[in-house]
Design a protein around this nucleic acid. Structure first.
Lengths: 213, 213
DNA sequence: ACGAAAACCTAGCGATCGCTCGGATAATAG
DNA sequence: CTATTATCCGAGCGATCGCTAGGTTTTCGT
């Protein structure tokens, strides 16, 4: 398993204190993040104390603070890795050229991401303090926004007239993302209802594309 | 003997411990909720300790626990009151009969609610532990879902063929609500952008109504 | 093999947490 | 008035929090 440099961010209270170099150190960091995710999933953020995370990870509290400058940094890193995982998965697959197929691809990808562990992602998006998540969130969002705008520009003739493609891309990303999150949070069992995926796809298509497409 | 008219909420760890009877007691509860809201807005849930809330409210910690069985109950009650405020506001106004006007009315109402205090509502929806909010949230949601389904049924002929109106109503409520929340959380300044309101309205209209409407 | 660097650990500090308890004060009922 | 209930108070408990200091063990480079 290769270790990606991008999952370790610039110097900040929410980034790793130092890079784990040896294999066992990487395993330690992974175990901490895994334990944090499990506790967050099972008992919520309030129950996820640093001592308990370390204990659950089978690691001493001292080792935890060897790599993480503070509690919130653990969840920031967790969010960072999951975000990049989704992002890389999505752009690894060839992106369809046809708008309809591309919309389908994006919506399905976003839903699949949430389906993998709805409770964890919902908790990450909602119970973890905003400050810890905000900057991490922006990284992938901005990247993806650029791709989306470029895609809309490439298919401008098929779209309804719209002055600001950037606003449009932002709006659709927020809508799709927010809806997926909300279902993951409020009705995780409905994530697998084929009607949900279909409804989201059709909603975006109908709003975005000209009527005669 | 003691006739117990606890008309505030069902007995639960998230409801008031006892009903404030005198005017000064009501003022105390209000002050506590107000202080909780301000601290939550300014410094987040992690900083909103019971001691600090009581101090900010100008009330002793003893008085706080006179009425609230625990910390989370404070935020549950806060959420309950804000939710009912929105709900009553929305159904107090005459609901338009025409589908397009009704959609407009609902979307604008939901956005106006979020506009009143984006940071507070975003924090309520996201940083407060789920358990404290869940049951409160369901109260208004279920009520409103009934209204929505009835409305869709009344205008069935104008809608695109759709088997399950209940699923449809739920989907639209979640989408509109989630989008409003997300903008309040990630880009509160854009809440006043007229393009956002317009985009949300058009998106719902285009998805919901037949093409020839 | 050996010194340096990296990784890991334990004990526990100071602060703060949520919350209780016993009693003081104010409003209300009879 | 008095008795009763409602309200308010704040010292402080036990638990736990995030986190650190200082030392030991493991790995790596040479």
């Amino acid at each position: 398993m290769q270790h990606d440099d991008r999952s370790i961010a610039a110097n900040s209270v929410y980034s790793l204190r130092k890079r784990p170099r040896q294999a066992r150190a990487i395993a330690t960091v992974d175990a901490i993040l895994d334990a944090a995710a499990r506790i967050l999933t099972e008992d919520g953020y309030a129950a996820a104390s640093t001592n308990r995370i370390a204990e659950r990870a089978g690691v001493s509290i001292g080792s935890l603070y060897e790599y993480f400058p503070g509690k919130e940094a653990i969840f920031a890193e967790l969010r960072r890795r999951e975000g990049h995982k989704f992002y890389r998965e999505l752009i690894a697959q060839p992106r369809p050229q046809q708008p309809r197929a591309a919309i389908c691809h994006i919506v399905r990808g976003r839903l699949n991401w949430m389906r993998r562990d709805p409770v964890l992602y919902a908790a990450l998006e909602t119970e973890v303090p905003r400050a810890a998540i905000a900057e991490v969130e922006a990284e992938v969002f901005d990247d993806f926004l650029g791709i989306s705008v470029a895609f809309l520009e490439a298919h401008r003739e098929m779209l309804r007239p719209e002055a600001d493609l950037r606003f449009l891309a932002e709006f659709l990303m927020h809508t799709v993302s927010a809806t997926a999150n909300t279902y993951g949070l409020r009705a995780p069992d409905q994530l697998d209802d084929p009607r949900l995926e279909q409804a989201m796809i059709e909603m975006v298509e109908r709003y975005l594309l000209k009527d005669d497409c």
